[in-house]
Protein backbone atom coordinates (compact mmCIF):
# COMPACT_ATOMS: atom_id res chain seq x y z
CA UNK A 1 0.00 0.00 0.00
CA UNK A 2 1.16 3.47 -0.83
CA UNK A 3 0.85 6.26 1.73
CA UNK A 4 1.22 9.82 0.52
CA UNK A 5 1.24 13.20 2.24
CA UNK A 6 -0.43 16.13 0.53
CA UNK A 7 1.89 19.16 0.80
CA UNK A 8 -1.05 21.54 0.36
CA UNK A 9 -3.34 20.53 3.24
CA UNK A 10 -0.82 18.37 5.10
CA UNK A 11 -3.06 15.30 5.27
CA UNK A 12 -1.52 11.83 5.04
CA UNK A 13 -3.62 9.09 3.52
CA UNK A 14 -3.38 5.85 1.64
CA UNK A 15 -3.54 5.71 -2.13
CA UNK A 16 -7.32 5.44 -2.56
CA UNK A 17 -7.54 9.05 -1.36
CA UNK A 18 -5.36 10.20 -4.25
CA UNK A 19 -5.37 10.07 -8.05
CA UNK A 20 -2.17 9.31 -9.97
CA UNK A 21 -1.40 11.85 -12.69
CA UNK A 22 1.68 10.38 -14.40
CA UNK A 23 5.20 11.66 -14.98
CA UNK A 24 5.98 15.14 -13.64
CA UNK A 25 7.86 18.09 -15.14
CA UNK A 26 6.92 17.32 -18.76
CA UNK A 27 7.61 20.23 -21.06
CA UNK A 28 4.41 21.16 -22.78
CA UNK A 29 4.37 21.54 -26.57
CA UNK A 30 1.41 22.69 -28.62
CA UNK A 31 0.53 23.93 -32.11
CA UNK A 32 3.58 24.89 -34.17
CA UNK A 33 5.96 22.51 -32.42
CA UNK A 34 7.79 19.73 -34.26
CA UNK A 35 6.28 16.25 -34.47
CA UNK A 36 9.09 14.92 -32.26
CA UNK A 37 8.50 17.49 -29.52
CA UNK A 38 4.78 16.82 -29.60
CA UNK A 39 5.40 13.06 -29.38
CA UNK A 40 7.74 13.57 -26.43
CA UNK A 41 5.16 15.66 -24.64
CA UNK A 42 2.24 13.32 -25.31
CA UNK A 43 3.76 9.84 -25.17
CA UNK A 44 7.49 9.52 -24.50
CA UNK A 45 8.18 8.70 -20.85
CA UNK A 46 11.19 8.12 -18.58
CA UNK A 47 9.47 5.11 -16.99
CA UNK A 48 12.48 4.40 -14.76
CA UNK A 49 12.93 1.39 -12.50
CA UNK A 50 13.92 3.53 -9.54
CA UNK A 51 13.44 7.21 -8.70
CA UNK A 52 10.37 8.67 -10.38
CA UNK A 53 8.88 12.14 -10.23
CA UNK A 54 5.15 12.18 -10.64
CA UNK A 55 1.97 14.19 -10.31
CA UNK A 56 -0.78 13.29 -7.88
CA UNK A 57 -4.11 14.87 -7.02
CA UNK A 58 -5.58 14.87 -3.54
CA UNK A 59 -8.86 13.69 -5.05
CA UNK A 60 -10.84 12.88 -1.90
CA UNK A 61 -9.25 15.61 0.19
CA UNK A 62 -8.43 19.20 -0.65
CA UNK A 63 -8.54 18.48 -4.40
CA UNK A 64 -5.16 20.03 -5.15
CA UNK A 65 -2.44 18.73 -7.47
CA UNK A 66 1.06 18.17 -6.12
CA UNK A 67 4.33 16.36 -6.90
CA UNK A 68 5.82 13.20 -5.40
CA UNK A 69 9.30 11.66 -5.62
CA UNK A 70 8.96 7.88 -5.32
CA UNK A 71 10.90 4.72 -6.07
CA UNK A 72 9.05 2.49 -8.55
CA UNK A 73 11.06 -0.55 -7.49
CA UNK A 74 10.35 -0.40 -3.75
CA UNK A 75 7.41 2.05 -3.57
CA UNK A 76 9.46 4.12 -1.08
CA UNK A 77 8.31 7.74 -1.04
CA UNK A 78 11.12 10.32 -0.76
CA UNK A 79 8.84 13.31 -0.32
CA UNK A 80 6.05 15.38 -1.80
CA UNK A 81 6.33 18.98 -2.98
CA UNK A 82 4.38 21.78 -4.54
CA UNK A 83 2.83 21.59 -8.01
CA UNK A 84 3.98 25.14 -8.70
CA UNK A 85 7.47 24.21 -9.87
CA UNK A 86 9.00 22.74 -13.01
CA UNK A 87 12.15 21.49 -11.28
CA UNK A 88 12.83 19.18 -8.36
CA UNK A 89 13.46 21.26 -5.19
CA UNK A 90 16.82 20.89 -3.42
CA UNK A 91 15.39 19.36 -0.25
CA UNK A 92 13.76 16.58 -2.27
CA UNK A 93 17.00 15.96 -4.17
CA UNK A 94 18.90 15.63 -0.88
CA UNK A 95 16.23 13.32 0.54
CA UNK A 96 16.71 11.06 -2.49
CA UNK A 97 20.53 11.27 -2.30
CA UNK A 98 20.39 10.25 1.36
CA UNK A 99 18.62 7.02 0.42
CA UNK A 100 20.09 6.45 -3.09
CA UNK A 101 23.69 7.79 -3.08
CA UNK A 102 24.25 6.65 -6.70
CA UNK A 103 21.19 8.39 -8.08
CA UNK A 104 21.71 11.11 -10.70
CA UNK A 105 18.92 13.30 -12.10
CA UNK A 106 17.86 12.08 -15.60
CA UNK A 107 18.41 14.31 -18.60
Amino acid sequence: MLRLTCPVCGATGEETEFHAGGEAHLKRFGPGSTDEDFRDYLFQRQNPRGVHFERWRHQYGCGKWFHVARCTQTLEVFGSYTAQTSTVPDHIQSAIKARRPDWEPAQ
Partner: peptide, 18 residues
Protein backbone atom coordinates in the same frame (compact mmCIF):
# COMPACT_ATOMS: atom_id res chain seq x y z
CA UNK B 1 7.40 -4.36 -18.30
CA UNK B 2 11.18 -3.86 -18.39
CA UNK B 3 11.22 -2.35 -21.90
CA UNK B 4 11.97 1.14 -20.60
CA UNK B 5 14.99 -0.17 -18.68
CA UNK B 6 16.43 -1.96 -21.73
CA UNK B 7 15.70 1.00 -24.02
CA UNK B 8 17.58 3.20 -21.57
CA UNK B 9 20.59 0.82 -21.77
CA UNK B 10 20.47 0.99 -25.57
CA UNK B 11 20.12 4.78 -25.54
CA UNK B 12 16.59 5.61 -26.60
CA UNK B 13 13.21 6.34 -25.03
CA UNK B 14 9.86 4.64 -25.48
CA UNK B 15 6.23 5.76 -25.33
CA UNK B 16 5.65 3.13 -22.65
CA UNK B 17 4.80 3.12 -18.95
CA UNK B 18 5.06 0.12 -16.64
Amino acid sequence: GNSGVLADMAGFKLPVES
